[in-house]
Simulated scan of single mutants.
Amino acid sequence: MIALTLMLAAAMPAPAEQAAIFKAAGATRRGTMWMMCAEEPRPEGAAIELYRDLNGDGRPESIVSEGGTFCYGAQEAGYAVLSKQPDGSWRKLTSGPGIAEPMKTKGAGGYPDLSIGGPGFCFPVVRWNGREYVNQRFEYEGKPCRPGR
């Protein structure tokens, strides 16, 4: 599995909660592993990289990641960001290729901005607007940048 710097989880959820998170992320079970990209010929499996309250509402959020080039191309990884809802279900807030890393800056509802890492030196930062995560800016090492330059 790709070594991510997101290993911020204080405690991992119980197995039933893990299954609910993977299912909400769109993953399917293959043998003992969960996969977001079922077509991956050499699967590494998805992993829960983060499980904690990110927006201060008392309910956990989760980031699920998976490595592989078959579905994620040059990014070599994919992610899904989920939030536990008041009724106990999980809702996918965003997903895509790259590595999602929560930032200190925040959008609506206290959700952190996400830096979407991948190859190169200029990464998109997405912000929660109350309905979805949308592109907000581009940064590299905390400084504004312009992609492709």
Results as ranks from 00 to 15, higher is better:
73 G>H: 04
73 G>M: 05
73 G>A: 14
73 G>I: 01
74 A>L: 15
74 A>S: 13
75 Q>E: 13
75 Q>K: 05
76 E>L: 02
76 E>W: 08
76 E>C: 07
77 A>Y: 04
78 G>K: 13
78 G>H: 13
78 G>S: 10
78 G>A: 06
78 G>T: 05
79 Y>R: 12
80 A>V: 01
80 A>F: 12
81 V>G: 09
81 V>T: 08
83 S>E: 08
83 S>L: 05
83 S>Y: 07
83 S>R: 14
83 S>F: 00
84 K>A: 01
84 K>V: 02
85 Q>Y: 05
85 Q>I: 03
86 P>T: 04
88 G>W: 12
88 G>E: 09
88 G>T: 07
89 S>R: 15
89 S>F: 01
90 W>T: 03
90 W>R: 12
90 W>D: 04
90 W>S: 09
90 W>Y: 06
91 R>N: 04
91 R>V: 02
91 R>P: 08
92 K>W: 04
92 K>R: 15
92 K>P: 04
92 K>D: 05
93 L>I: 07
95 S>Y: 05
96 G>C: 06
96 G>E: 06
96 G>R: 01
97 P>N: 12
97 P>Q: 07
99 I>C: 08
99 I>G: 07
100 A>R: 13
100 A>I: 02
100 A>L: 10
101 E>V: 05
101 E>C: 05
101 E>W: 03
101 E>G: 03
101 E>S: 09
102 P>G: 06
102 P>D: 14
102 P>N: 14
103 M>P: 07
103 M>R: 12
104 K>S: 10
104 K>A: 08
105 T>A: 15
105 T>E: 14
106 K>L: 15
107 G>E: 10
107 G>H: 01
107 G>M: 04
108 A>T: 09
108 A>F: 01
108 A>Q: 14
108 A>G: 07
108 A>N: 01
108 A>R: 13
108 A>H: 11
109 G>D: 10
109 G>Y: 05
109 G>S: 03
109 G>F: 05
110 G>M: 11
110 G>R: 04
110 G>L: 09
110 G>T: 03
111 Y>H: 14
111 Y>F: 10
112 P>A: 10
112 P>L: 03
113 D>I: 11
114 L>M: 09
114 L>Q: 06
114 L>Y: 12
114 L>C: 11
114 L>E: 08
115 S>N: 11
115 S>G: 13
115 S>M: 11
115 S>A: 14
115 S>Y: 09
116 I>W: 04
116 I>H: 01
117 G>P: 01
117 G>H: 13
117 G>N: 13
117 G>Q: 12
118 G>E: 11
118 G>A: 10
119 P>W: 10
119 P>M: 01
119 P>V: 12
119 P>Q: 13
119 P>R: 11
120 G>I: 02
120 G>S: 02
121 F>A: 15
121 F>K: 14
121 F>T: 14
122 C>N: 07
123 F>R: 04
123 F>C: 00
123 F>A: 02
124 P>M: 15
124 P>G: 08
124 P>Y: 09
124 P>S: 04
